[in-house]
Simulated scan of single mutants.
Amino acid sequence: MTASLFDTAPDFDQPIAVLRHCHDRIRKQLRTLQGLAGPEGQAASIQERAQAASAVLRYFEKAAPNHHADEEDDLLPMLRATARGDDAALLERLAPNILDEHRKMEPLWAALEAPLRRIAAGETAQLDAAAVAEFSRLYLSHMEIEEGNIAPMAKRLFSDEQMTRLGNAMRRRRGIDGDAA
């Protein structure tokens, strides 16, 4: 058996696994962002800093908004339609906070975006370490709640048809063909 050299993403036939994979990628980009703001980022070459900043920008400008839309437009509404009893009560408590945290991430990202663009262009710019720390803290606690509550609930409650519907919506959002029947 040979090991893959590539970090392969799960298929959209497993939409909850795709969401978890997105969280793993967010964690990777947060580590890169923290590195850029720290001493190792200052010691890196201009080219290394530019590549790292470009990777962070690519992820948080495209993939992260798709991920948030997956949750806001599909996952949470489908859970609201399905959950009953204790699950519905938990969802009623958590969903507003999840949506509010998505809104709180936007201005934090906006504060980081301009210096990241300058770094990506090879210019000298500093990231605000406090802004990076707050952005990272918010994202990490947010993902912990989703992974500890929302994802297990969806895996337990969704039928195969609901999982297919969720996966297909995620595909369409990304412009990927291959909707299952």
Rank of each mutant, 00 (worst) to 15 (best):
T2R: 15
T2Y: 05
T2C: 01
A3G: 13
S4Q: 15
F6S: 11
D7F: 05
D7Q: 09
T8N: 11
D11E: 11
D11R: 09
D11T: 09
D11S: 12
D11Q: 09
D11P: 01
D13T: 07
D13Q: 03
I16S: 02
A17S: 12
V18R: 05
V18A: 02
V18F: 05
H23P: 06
H23N: 12
D24Y: 13
D24V: 10
D24E: 11
R27M: 15
K28W: 15
Q29C: 08
Q29F: 06
Q29V: 05
Q29M: 14
L30C: 14
R31F: 08
T32I: 12
L33P: 09
Q34D: 06
G35I: 02
A37Q: 01
G38Q: 03
P39L: 07
P39F: 02
E40W: 11
Q42P: 00
A43G: 04
A44L: 10
S45Q: 13
S45R: 13
I46C: 13
I46T: 15
Q51C: 05
A52G: 09
S54M: 08
A55H: 05
A55F: 00
L57S: 03
R58E: 14
R58L: 08
F60T: 12
E61T: 10
E61M: 05
A64V: 11
P65E: 00
P65A: 01
H68C: 05
A69N: 04
A69E: 12
E72D: 14
D73I: 00
D74S: 10
M78E: 11
L79E: 11
A81P: 09
A81D: 15
A81E: 15
T82Y: 00
D86H: 05
D86S: 02
D87A: 15
D87V: 13
D87T: 14
A89L: 12
L91R: 04
R93C: 04
P96A: 02
P96K: 04
P96D: 04
R103E: 15
R103Y: 04
R103H: 10
M105H: 08
E106W: 04
W109P: 08
W109G: 06
A110N: 01
A111C: 01
A114H: 07
P115V: 04
L116G: 12
I119T: 05
A120M: 03
E123F: 13
E123W: 14
T124L: 09
T124K: 12
A125N: 02
A125C: 00
L127W: 00
L127H: 00
A130H: 10
A131Q: 13
A131Y: 01
V132K: 03
V132R: 01
E134M: 04
Y139K: 14
H142P: 01
H142V: 06
M143K: 05
I145C: 02
E146V: 08
E147Q: 02
G148Y: 08
I150H: 13
P152M: 01
M153S: 07
A154H: 05
K155F: 00
F158A: 14
F158P: 13
S159C: 09
E161C: 06
M163F: 06
R165H: 11
G167I: 11
A169C: 09
M170C: 06
R171K: 15
R173E: 12
R174W: 08
R174Q: 15
I176T: 05
D177K: 06
D179Q: 08
D179G: 03
A181C: 02
